[in-house]
């Protein structure tokens, strides 16, 4: 009997240790979707109320657009330019070694890769690192200094007051940054193929034009919208859940960046598969 009890206790302890993290994960996912629902509802409320938008949200939204968009331009452009250059070097040298003369397709390969995948993904990861971390840290600091509680006592909804300007800022600027990254990446590829691989500009740009269609541009830009939502929701979620002083702020910041980056990469795969169906 005693042996049976011991086995039973061990079994349930083992079950708990497996079930607990799974339950917590589902709870987190549930909370993220609840926050997303609240955020979308709050955004709709603000956008459909011109007085509210003009008086309380116009200025914060503009500030967020500058912080997310304008301030991210140097880092996004530099990264995109060099990514385009590296992509051209690696692709050009590799395919030329395999099939003589095939490096003339470098314009097709570089531009397609950039516009469909690298442009949106790289931009999203960079903006997540730069803006998502700052967002989670800022909201986390507000949480531990009771500023979020103060908002509630002044009958202001924190998701509306803090979340919406950031959400709209990221949602508007991410596709803009993606377009800039695509253009600079493409220019980087052209620089290397013209001056390093000796491919004529006409061949490079003709290749790009013949391969990249409107559907590719749409696929890249629409991905950047989804990535903006992912970035924002993780940064807000971790920020609002912060506890435990400065250590907690650090934990939230890291959590926001890591979770958002991983989710962006996973979402990219599924979105690519989804677009392949059409």
């Amino acid at each position: 009997m005693k042996v049976m009890t011991k086995i039973s206790v061990r079994f349930w302890r083992g079950f708990d240790s497996v079930a607990d993290p799974i339950l917590k994960l589902f709870l987190e996912i549930g909370n993220i979707f609840i926050l997303l629902g609240e955020l979308l509802a709050a955004t709709f409320r603000i956008l459909t109320c011109p007085r509210k938008l003009r008086h309380f949200y116009y200025q914060p939204i503009m500030e967020q657009m500058v912080r997310v968009g304008v301030d991210s331009i140097p880092v996004v452009l530099t990264t995109a330019l060099f990514t385009g250059m590296v992509l051209a070097v690696q692709t050009g040298v590799t395919i030329e070694a395999k099939i003589k003369g095939s490096s003339m397709f470098i314009g097709n390969i570089v531009n397609l890769a950039l516009i469909r995948e690298l442009g949106p993904v790289l931009t999203a990861i960079l903006v997540t690192g730069r803006v998502g971390s700052a967002m989670a840290a800022e909201i986390g600091s507000m949480k531990i200094t009771e500023q979020i509680d103060a908002l509630r006592t002044l009958a202001a909804n924190p998701v509306e007051y803090i979340g919406v300007p950031r959400f709209l800022g990221v949602l508007c600027m991410m596709p803009m940054l993606t377009i800039l990254a695509d253009v600079l990446g493409s220019l980087g590829g052209w620089l290397v193929s013209s001056f390093h691989l000796g491919i004529s500009s006409t061949v490079y740009w003709d290749g790009a034009q013949s391969t990249v269609g409107l559907a590719d541009i749409f696929s890249g830009l629409s991905k950047s919208f989804f990535f903006a939502i992912i970035l924002c929701i993780f940064a807000l979620h971790r920020g609002f859940q912060t506890y435990g002083g400065a250590v907690g702020v650090g934990r939230s910041t890291t959590g926001a960046v890591v979770n958002a980056s991983i989710t962006i990469l996973i979402a990219d795969y599924f979105l690519t598969q989804l677009y392949a169906l059409f």
């Binding site: 008086h55 309380f56 600091s141 507000m142 200094t145 009771e146 500023q147 509680d149 103060a150 908002l151 006592t153 002044l154 009958a155 202001a156």
Partner: peptide, 28 residues
């Protein structure tokens, strides 16, 4: 019907004193 004075004051960092004090007035 309530006013709350928080332990660490909980003033909004990004707003001026005037904006902090008038926060509720402007909204409500």
């Amino acid at each position: 019907r309530f006013g709350v004075l928080f332990q660490g004051a909980a003033l909004f960092d990004s707003l001026s004193v005037e904006e902090n004090v008038s926060f509720g007035l402007r909204r409500m």
